[in-house]
Amino acid sequence: MAARRADTVTVTIVRTGGVAGHRRQWVATASGSAADLVRELVESDAWAGVGADPTSRDRFVWSIVVTGVGRRRTLTMPDSHLVGPIQELVRRVQADGEAVADPGWHGTATSE
């Protein structure tokens, strides 16, 4: 059974890697026709998985998380593949969304 569609769509961009190794996060929401367009994007070919970047070092790794589109959708891609409509979405969320300060590290610190 499909989840009930939310009125707004939330797009979270997480950037990790880079020579600095900083984790940065930006969040933006869309409603109305804008939300519909995000929903179309996650169903499009542009959202299809892309390959790894085996030769680059210190490039960013991008993770795009969209909620409010039924099931939560996540796309992870290397910086070298960030082009076209996905890149536009990322740039716009970075520009107009809210940078989440001090997001902490999304992982587990294991101790002995």
Partner: peptide
């Protein structure tokens, strides 16, 4: 020890329609 991501706040930003048209 666990390091958890803080809850994601609902941000006020709106993805502008002109961009999404192009998308």
């Amino acid at each position: 020890t666990s390091v958890n991501l803080p809850p994601t706040a609902m941000a006020p930003g709106i993805v502008p329609p002109f961009l999404l048209t192009r998308i």
